[in-house]
Design a binder for these strands. Structure first.
Lengths: 239, 239
DNA sequence: CTTATGCAGATTGTCGACAATCTCAGACCG
DNA sequence: CGGTCTGAGATTGTCGACAATCTGCATAAG
């Protein structure tokens, strides 16, 4: 009557407090309710979530490892403000991973499995609806979820969780470096990618994916402008 | 007199206990001194390292996030024993990442920068020396470091730390699933890859890298055989 | 008026103690 | 003889308290 190590249903309703707090903070950051640089005071968060400080501390530690929170010794935790080089690294990493996903999605020209195509089309419809409604918050969220959906359909959880971290960091990068309130976003580009995948044209899909990620990066003004990164002497020597 | 956020030399000799413990455990696992499945009792480790349990706890938590330690609620921490699907995922992820590294290493056919080539050749020599001396421990370590060196030379820290985790997990997979004491390892294959990179032949390098990683995977007997994964009924129904 | 100095409040870092849970062995029963 | 139950020991989960450190403001000196 032993339920062996993998318990499919033996752990039905254990929310695992630590995990929940971690995700709530992560989601708040992804939704831009907590912009880059925000101080995350342990005691305040502990009070908000009704848990002990140790719990919040643990959550902040894991978020720090995922690169979306910065831990400064004796200073506390802050929502990460990615540096310019870090921003470029994140997009480069995404291009590597997401291009690598393509062959798994359209197996040697056979194209997407019907179920996968259906899920992607459904997602594209949601994106279109959000765009039509002008729901900016939903657009941001759905745009990220599109890429995670691809990882999910590729069926590699290891790459999936890595990509999840990259997408979250991308969101942070965009929050830190976007100049205008984003021109037209890119729901169309997603659709083109799905079309190529469905047609089994891997080469085209890889190219479109690469272009898409480059386009997102190019929309940003990736240059140091954070207050504490400015070299005051250089600023005034130039004048 | 402010030393702004990035302190190049202001934090010279702060070992950061937590980090040190994490790495010492991780290295012990990589060196196979702690084989898959080993119980990691908090109090015992705390006594060994001369620190409080909370510190060990933190270290185990981060190792758990990197996938080389498994945390079972109310049971404690164990060196991870990757499942077969997880093993395949890790190698697939490595193929994606390491193939993606190639274009950055030999920029559009220009080949490796001289400094990079020198470091790689020096590493190959060390590998050859270890193989000649029959130093199995060193061979394992150097073989992993070769791939990390590639990530380092590619200059993307984000992909680098991800690959570091993948290499460590690969080591765990090999420890769990290798049948014989490894035939001839693969120092030669590393040399071929470096040759292709130096020649600026990216396509060849990608192919060699892919083959190399497939070869490592194929040397393993990737089938469930862990005691608690065997379905006794199926075993005897077949007879 | 600008620049040092010292103090108070707030926040993080660390630890030990207690409660909850699991493991294992031996006793007990069918 | 095999299976179940109970208890002791060991281990993990959780929390609150105290010390160390930082931040900002008031005060004093130049």
């Amino acid at each position: 009557m032993k339920a062996s190590r993998e318990r499919p249903a033996a752990t039905p309703a254990r929310p695992d407090v630590q995990e929940v707090i971690t995700r709530r903070i992560a989601d708040a950051i992804a939704d831009r309710r907590l912009p880059p640089g925000t101080k995350l005071t342990e005691e305040r968060l502990a009070a908000i979530f009704g848990v002990s400080r140790a719990r919040v501390r643990g959550a902040l530690a894991t978020l720090s490892q995922r690169g979306i929170v910065t831990l400064r010794p004796n200073r506390g935790a802050f929502v990460a403000t990615p540096s310019v080089t870090e921003a470029r690294e994140v997009f480069e990493a995404r291009r590597v991973v997401e291009r690598g996903l393509v062959p798994r999605l359209c197996r040697n020209g056979a194209g997407l499995p019907p179920a996968a195509a259906a899920r992607l089309r459904a997602h594209l419809d949601k994106e279109a609806a959000a765009e039509a409604a002008g729901d900016r918050k939903a657009m941001i969220r759905l745009s990220g979820e599109f890429h995670l959906l691809l990882a999910d359909l590729a069926g590699n959880a290891t790459l999936g969780t890595f990509l999840d971290g990259l997408v979250r960091r991308s969101s942070l990068v965009i929050a830190a470096y976007e100049s205008r309130p984003t021109p037209g976003c890119s729901a169309d580009e997603h659709r083109h990618i799905v079309d190529a995948l469905a047609a089994g044209d891997g080469a085209a899909a890889e190219r479109l994916m690469d272009d898409h990620l480059h386009a997102i990066e190019d929309r940003l003004t990736l240059e140091d402008r954070a207050a504490d990164a400015i070299d005051l002497r250089a600023v005034f020597d130039a004048a």
